[in-house]
Nucleic acid binder design. Structure first.
Lengths: 350, 350
DNA sequence: TGTTAGCACTCTTGCTACTGGAGTGCTAAG
DNA sequence: CTTAGCACTCCAGTAGCAAGAGTGCTAACA
């Protein structure tokens, strides 16, 4: 069977109605719409076909029809028309986004909160994955008798630093030697490479000469690298799900919240998603718990290289067109903001 | 009317039963208890008295009795016997607490998660309020042509540092002069004093000489101070409330979650609470939304001076004895951990 | 005088039966 | 191919009923 023009029209109308009301939609309701000027019976026939084809389901015999995941997928791929945000909406978003101080993390967090407020969904934002970031330069700066500052500069321009308390006395010469050795060993390596590849064994010989300096510095170095690598997950609008009829069941709301509170796992899943705008609908999500959720993620770029994610989680019954447009606009905006110049002035990864 | 021995016994039994079951408790149930060897009728009479005195309430005529806030207050103040944790329980807590790396913030966060797991309640932990912390020493360390590291050392031993990108060239002399001027101006001031008291105006004259150095440094200095002052709030076990019958009503659960997601306000409220172990029961809480919650907070000390908070939020029907013991043990443990030596080796306030 | 048994009364909870409404599927006529 | 008509299904809401739990009161008892 093929999807006739009319079937598509009907399907679209059902989706539109269901998204709005969360109630199964019946033939009579549809036949009243001006663009569907057929009798209920005709529409019923078409709906029966659509159901057979897998686009609609039936909660029970005497209820209206509900779009299936397949229907939403079709809608997102083909039927949906990109909603262009009005100038006004754009202005609101842009203004709110730039109202924050120029701190990187704050801006990301803020983006998530804007997104959740506008969409009334649960939103999240992931700070960039620094897997691609490469170490450039490591320096140890003497401060006083038993404190030095460890400074790590990455290719992308991030500067991390940390005060290290030394258990043994040091000389500037030794410090400089250690700095150079470390830079020599780690330069060009990604942060994660540097982390797994504990090089302390490699310069065993030098270490002896440095009489324990490295033993103080290396653990702090590793810890700082971990901090640099760390991806932060911000979530906003957690309680928005309570307003969604699908989650008026307490146990559902609970398992949803539980899923969201497992931040590590969630972070991992989000990182693993492909870059660009990705929409996964209901059963398309591998996780059981997300089977009646849709997930929309998009990526933003920092300095054209590091990639962060931002998106929403909501019921499959979602205003895909509106939400994707908003996310698109947000990521465009973030990309602009983090393009080149502004990368330098903010704090390190943490 | 006075609270006879027997009345107290009955009240205590009602509280114990209600805490366990969350069901109004009736006279028959009570009369079956070995320690209350009276007929239901007798107990009914006593209960009627207790109700008149405000210790019990009645959901409806033919239901059992429920303890009032006043009853819980009496229980907490007088009736409750301190539960001594078993050696085993103590060991579990202590081991889990110290299984974390020696990072300060991580330990605090971990404490909250232990607390929520053991009590099955929603727990929170607040990192220390640094209002008392006093600045000791400010230094600017040259790194390369246009980067210097700003280092701030506080009396409590925290070292914060931040890389500052300079828009104008500098000399080491000028840098040192600025360091000294800043130290001179801010030494002995608390962080919050330093923040409110923007001293840039005070050394206007010197600034001219320093040709714009301060303009680069000061905003970063202020931002770093803010970071140092910042109190972090960790919450764990958010979804635990879903298992509590009191919150089986969706709208209640929602408003509870909403309250908890307003982190700033919550932080403020928690900071403002008195130090030491504080229990506020139901209507004793000024906030409407907490009128059927109890809040237990306790403070822990860092270096004997800075004060953080840890505690739980749960229904008024709570195992006060058990929970306070656990919190007490946790804070004792934290106090030990942060006593003296371990303060130095961790990262700055952020 | 304090305690207890007994009883009428109240209120909740769960069950059943019923009804109206919304919607479908099918058939037959246009 | 479209549509009107009709029988059928299922849900949601309501009313009624019975069982159960608990109370308050009264009167008898120690």
């Amino acid at each position: 069977m093929e999807l006739s023009e009319r079937k598509l029209k009907i399907l679209q109308a059902i989706i539109a109605d269901y998204v709005r009301t969360a109630e199964p939609v019946g033939s009579r309701t549809l036949s009243k719409k001006p663009e569907l000027d057929f009798s209920p019976a005709t529409i019923r026939n078409e709906m029966a076909d659509l159901e057979e084809m897998g686009y609609l389901t039936h909660p029970h015999t005497s209820a209206g029809r509900v779009p299936s995941d397949k229907a939403y997928r079709l809608y997102v791929n083909a039927l949906m028309e990109k909603k262009e945000l009005s100038r006004e909406e754009k202005n609101i978003i842009a203004e709110r986004l730039h109202s924050t101080a120029d701190e990187f993390e704050k801006t990301i967090e803020h983006a998530a909160s804007i997104l959740s407020e506008i969409t009334n969904l649960t939103s999240f934002a992931l700070t960039p994955n620094k897997d691609e970031d490469v170490l450039k330069y490591i320096n140890l700066i003497p401060v006083d008798g038993n404190t030095v500052i460890l400074m790590i500069v990455s290719e992308s321009g991030k500067v991390s630093n940390k005060a290290v308390h030394m258990s043994v006395p040091y000389t500037e010469d030794k410090l400089q030697l250690l700095s150079k050795t470390m830079t020599y060993n780690y330069k060009g390596k990604t942060i994660s490479q540097a982390l797994t590849n504990n090089i302390i064994a490699n310069f065993e010989t030098d270490i002896v000469a440095m009489s324990g300096l490295a033993e103080d510095v290396m653990p702090n170095f590793m810890k700082t690298l971990e901090d640099m690598l760390n991806v932060n997950l911000y979530m906003e609008g957690l309680t928005n799900i309570f307003d969604i009829p699908e989650y008026s069941d307490l146990s559902k709301a609970k398992s949803f919240m539980e899923m969201l509170s497992q931040k590590e796992e969630l972070t991992k899943k989000l990182i693993e998603r492909e870059d660009g705008m990705v929409v996964t609908i209901g059963g398309e999500n591998p996780e059981d718990i997300l089977h009646d959720c849709s997930l929309i993620t998009a990526s933003y770029h920092v300095d054209g290289k590091l990639i962060g994610k931002i998106g929403v989680i909501g019921p499959t019954r979602m205003k895909y067109s509106e939400v994707t447009s908003i996310i698109q606009y947000l990521t465009d905006n973030l990309n602009d903001t983090f393009k080149l110049e502004s990368g330098g002035n903010d704090k390190n990864g943490q």
